[in-house]
Nucleic acid binder design. Structure first.
Lengths: 232, 232
DNA sequence: CAGGCATATTGCGCCAGAACAAACTTTGAT
DNA sequence: ATCAAAGTTTGTTCTGGCGCAATATGCCTG
């Protein structure tokens, strides 16, 4: 395998406090791996043997119910750690992770976890910050699911995605990975039919523009309005 | 203030690995405080100045939306830590915490947190296990809110409460703190009306028995059935 | 024990959104 | 080009459960 360059990690929060040699050390312990779009990295409740860093692409954490329904818990953008079950005192992965687009990851055996925490300055702190952020996101999800209507949930989900992975494009901000109506409905707890109707309506109003597997938000303000307004 | 006894902490997971002197140390740093039923311990987004151990009673973490709706995130049973914002890399509390019944807590200034983590064996590990468990609970909530119907959500919420704080009583298992239909609806993302109807119906079937602010589950199996069954 | 307040029950109408159904479009493979 | 598969749109029907409103019941206070 080609030797990995230190600059890959140097600017990422979990490693930003570390010196060159330490990063070299870490990289030499890592394995890099490429995943196709839609590939499964690991399954829920599997033994948590590795922890991962997402170098490029997007992955999502999801659950599959006994009835076969998919519920998306979380999207992870490039640059973040995932599969960090040990940070939560768990020995199995709490969710299934699959790639949303082609993805490049680094991984380390979980047996190295304690030494990463102990040896590398800032690694623990940043990791727990990440955990805290995800927890916050989940709380927001719960609140939204509890009190918001479908339309509001879809609107704020779109806003969140734009915020996390939006890429400037002409006429709006593009969500930077392939996303279907079904995906959106898995994130919002509704059906793809309803999402389709909403997007069509919004497109007519010029708020979004959507092609197959692609959504561009043209008027974020309008979505914000939709997501907060309590309709009469 | 009366001196606290070491036996208070000795058997609790975060401290169970510690020796007598260490526990003494910890207790001497602690302040104990009693809260009335329904009292607020701290508010969301307040500066996280303390971390808490719940010695007796039950507290709940909740959010209040701008519109004034309450969403209950989590119940914390006696013996657990809460307000551990620092474990999540946060400097403010992520939710409001209020007591559900009369409660006794110990608290320490958050400035002691780093030293607790560093000095006391097992404290960090157990803390993160707690975080992991709560995260798991939240995931379950999200899944339930996404794919289950109101009746199923109420049923499984009742089961969870029975599981966490149930106390054997004649004729069934009693939920060991005062709980209103409104509370239940805040936990399940529905209205108190619907909860009331459901409880009435279940009472007629002999599945539960409810007085004012009190619910007893007589036939857990029936609730389990209700919570999983995919109604035609 | 009277009055007042919080909690609970119940009936009714209505509508957001799910379920079902079917056609259409884009993409990619042969 | 042709075909198949995946994704999307749109129409119609139906219902769970919310909103509103009135009433009942237990609980606390003075």
């Amino acid at each position: 395998m080609a030797k990995l360059d230190e600059s890959l990690l140097a600017h990422l929060p979990p490693f930003s406090l570390l010196g060159r040699e330490q990063i070299r050390e870490i990289l030499d312990l890592a394995t890099s791996q490429r995943f196709e779009e839609g590939a499964t990295v690991y399954h829920e409740s599997e033994d948590a043997g590795r922890f991962y860093l997402l170098l490029d692409g997007t992955v999502r954490a999801l659950h599959i119910t006994p009835e076969g329904e998919h519920v998306t818990a979380l999207h992870v953008p490039a640059g973040q750690l995932f599969g960090i079950a040990r940070a939560l005192g768990r020995s199995t992965y709490p969710a299934t992770v699959e790639t949303v687009s082609e993805a490049i990851v680094l991984w380390w055996p979980m047996s190295l976890w304690p030494q990463f925490i102990a040896r590398y300055e800032g690694f623990a702190t940043e990791t727990y910050r990440t955990v805290g952020e995800r927890l916050g996101e989940m709380q927001t999800r719960i609140i939204e699911l509890s009190v918001l209507h479908v339309e509001q949930r879809v609107a704020s989900t779109l806003l969140r995605l734009v915020d996390q992975t939006g890429r400037k494009a002409e006429g709006g901000i593009l969500i930077d990975f392939p996303i279907t109506r079904q995906d959106l409905s898995d994130m919002t707890g509704t059906t793809l039919h309803t999402v389709s109707r909403l997007l069509s309506a919004w497109q007519k109003q010029g708020i979004v523009e959507s092609r197959r597997k692609q959504i561009m938000v043209c008027e974020p303000q309008s979505l914000t309005a939709l997501s907060t307004a309590r309709p009469a």
